[in-house]
Design a protein around this nucleic acid. Structure first.
Lengths: 206, 206
DNA sequence: GCAGAAATTTGACACAAGTCAAAAAAATAC
DNA sequence: GTATTTTTTTGACTTGTGTCAAATTTCTGC
């Protein structure tokens, strides 16, 4: 397997359209009562995953928020023997299979470590208890889901309104690290276009 | 303007894949403390809209959840002089421009009454206060957003994996009322295909 | 019921993007 | 450094879906 071009110094945050909202979440997070913050941090458990391993597989129930500390991961599903990448995670992003998590039903996605990966994990039931104990925590979780919903609505819109090369150019503008650090296979599956089409687009653009 | 084929007796709920989750929300809703329930109901204000009028327009800030009591509405945006329908609402559905609502920023969508419409509206700030006062209400709102997020993720997947006729057949199976009651123009813009393509698909299917 | 308007269907054609296959380039192992 | 494997590019061809235009059907108002 080839090594991706990525280093520790190289991790700018994803520049999504909703950075402001992310900022608001972080602000609220940092303004939590110190006691709650401590309790929250104690609830998190660090884990490491080898490159190529899976943090979640189909048929499993997603029981955790996975906060990426170091490395790159992605979530994908398989449709007709073809992988389609839903999300790509960099440090500070949260990986989750939302439908499996909220309904505690078996999901159908893979979450894969694309590099050596360090994550910090908060377990479903422990987080659930904290949410019920502290409305502020519930509020933060709600904001996370709101962000998630709006992000998906925007991504849907990209598929409805942009053709392959427009989607590529937008990706290059909004999430350049994805194009920069990941093999074309994965970029293509994230844009939902074929390898060959992506290759042709690239040769025209540059 | 033509009248849609719809009557008062004709309103089965949308059969989305997440009916179970909807049921859970309703269960929780009905199990709310009676005092809270009353306060919640008092916060709702009924409104009527004429067919063809807009409940929300671009540049406006979405300040309310709009619960449909009677009639049909839709949310759409305009891309290159072309309307793209995001969601279609039947009685019991909640119409909202989520990104505008959560960030209290001007949005870019229309919410349009497709028939004479009766809605019940809860204002942003009043709902906000109630959410902070009662964790149960916050929880319900959070579940609503979760439902919303998962629904959008599923809709995105339909666009990634299904071609035009497969999307049509899926719509026919999952949300037959949309095909049944709405003009082809709107069905096509909901499937994000051209009128002509939809027409050809229909002639092959039936 | 008839005339005009609106919605829907049908036809001809264009083009974006997929597929399959093969060549070229780049990365990895020895 | 060379050989092997993997990734990326290029070419030829096919197909789904859009566009424009015209014909047809269906509504609506009188």
């Amino acid at each position: 397997m080839r090594h991706f071009r990525t280093t520790k110094t190289d991790r700018k945050r994803k520049t999504r359209t909703m950075n402001l909202y992310i900022k608001r979440i972080k602000d609220l997070h940092s303004k939590l009562d110190p006691a709650i913050l401590t309790e929250l941090e104690e609830a998190f458990v660090d884990k490491k995953f080898a490159k190529g391993s899976y943090l979640l597989r189909p048929e499993q129930i997603c029981t955790a928020h996975l906060l990426i500390k170091e490395g790159i991961a992605r979530k994908f599903y398989i449709h007709q023997d073809r992988e389609i990448t839903i999300e790509i995670y960099f440090p500070d992003d949260v990986a989750i299979s939302l439908d499996s998590y909220i309904m505690q039903n078996p999901g159908d996605v893979f979450i894969e470590a694309l590099t050596e990966l360090e994550v910090t994990v908060i377990d479903y039931s422990r987080f659930y208890k904290m949410k019920n104990k502290y409305p502020e925590v519930m509020m933060l979780d709600k904001m996370f889901i709101e962000y998630y919903a709006v992000w998906f609505e925007q991504r849907l819109r990209a598929f409805q309104t942009l053709d392959a090369s427009q989607r590529y150019l937008k990706l290059l503008e909004k999430e350049p690290q994805i194009v920069q650090f990941l093999p074309v296979t994965i970029v293509a599956s994230y844009l939902n276009i074929s390898l060959e089409t992506l290759s042709r687009i690239r040769s025209k653009v540059s």
